[in-house]
């Protein structure tokens, strides 16, 4: 099995593993950010360039570095390969440049965007971008397009990651959805504003890293961080039925697929589960969803609850000790 060193940490991985996958095995502190790569979609990745890393040693036979930075999501590891990611100022600077490029035509309308709070571009901007922009021209704009009864496409926010195109292509037959035009006016579109009508079309909302594809049944209902995620399931004939419900008070505002720690869905879900079952009685509740603490969504709920519980425990301990000493 090939052995690879990323940021000074060694790991043995199966043959055919990409640098990004190897870095994810090592953990989030070495894994490069990814905006277009999606492990569940074939041929995804390579477009956004946020995951670029530098290969300082090709393999055990060839100690030369690769001449250019490479997209870690599409580069397979070789035995003895050495990679620098967060330890290389050059890579960090290049990544900062990529973030800036992704943001120059992005409207930054986060205050009115449904994706805000679970947006990968926000996270990326905070973690790897600069605090201001040097772009002082007009930003590109598109009209909003309704693609089907459930999904709205707001191209102005799109970063052309191609994830939705691959999803539409790989999950269902009869693809009507792709990229038209080129350069900075390229846009995701359906054939002459055709609607996407198939049982799994809602998944494009989940794979979209930004707010370009949004759930029309949830639009402007609530900021995501005011809703509580709860895992639930139901018997569904079309999909696994394993979903995440987003509660506000006692109401289910939104149903999404469950996402793992890299923001990728665990199981694709059908439109029936996603859009048509918004009553609590439709679902068997499993319990609160695990949400990583770097997410703004966690700030309101579990972290606080956990903190309260922990402080409570500590207070009780102190009280207990006091009682003991009083005896």
């Amino acid at each position: 099995m090939p052995q690879v060193t990323i940021d000074g940490r060694e790991i043995e991985v199966p043959k055919g593993t990409t640098i990004l996958q190897a870095a994810r095995m090592l953990g989030p502190d070495v894994a490069p950010p990814a905006m277009c790569y999606y492990s569940k979609l074939k041929t995804s990745g390579g477009y956004c360039r946020t995951c670029i890393v530098r290969v300082t040693k090709m393999n055990s036979q060839n100690p030369n570095p690769m001449p250019k930075p490479v997209a870690s999501c599409r580069t397979e590891v070789m035995d003895g390969m050495e990679v620098v990611n967060f330890t290389s100022p050059e890579v960090l600077e290049a990544r900062k440049g990529v973030v800036e490029f992704l943001l120059i035509n992005h409207p930054l309308d986060c205050p009115v965007c449904d994706q805000a709070g679970e947006c990968h571009l926000q996270d990326l901007g905070y973690e790897h971008g600069a605090s201001t922009t040097r772009y002082d021209f007009e930003r590109r704009e598109f009209d909003k397009i309704d693609i089907g009864p459930y999904v709205q496409l707001h191209m102005t926010r799109c970063i052309l990651c191609y994830r939705c195109v691959k999803t539409a292509d790989q999950l269902t037959d009869g693809r009507v959805h792709g990229v038209i035009n080129r350069g900075d006016v390229a846009e995701i579109s359906t054939y002459i504003q055709n609607s996407i009508e198939n049982e799994f079309s809602g998944n494009v909302i989940d794979v979209c890293p930004v707010g370009a594809l949004t759930d029309k049944t949830f639009r402007f209902k609530s900021r995501v961080w005011f809703t509580k995620p709860v895992d639930a399931h139901r018997n569904c004939t079309k999909c696994s039925g394993k979903v995440r419900l987003w509660f506000k008070g006692g109401d289910v505002l939104r149903v999404t697929a469950r996402k793992d720690q890299w923001g990728e869905v665990e199981d694709w879900i059908c439109n029936d589960c996603r859009f048509e079952h918004k009553k609590v009685s439709d679902w068997n509740i499993e319990g609160p969803s695990p949400i990583s603490h770097h997410s703004v969504i966690s700030q309101n709920h579990y972290e606080l609850v956990k903190l309260k519980l922990e402080t409570g425990k500590k207070l009780n301990e102190v009280k207990g000790k006091k009682k003991e000493s009083a005896k």
Binding site: L102, L160, G183, V185, A186
Partner: peptide, 15 residues
Amino acid sequence: ESCGQCSPCREGTGW
């Protein structure tokens, strides 16, 4: 002429 596939070229050439 940029194809618009990867972000540095798509956005950078226009800029």
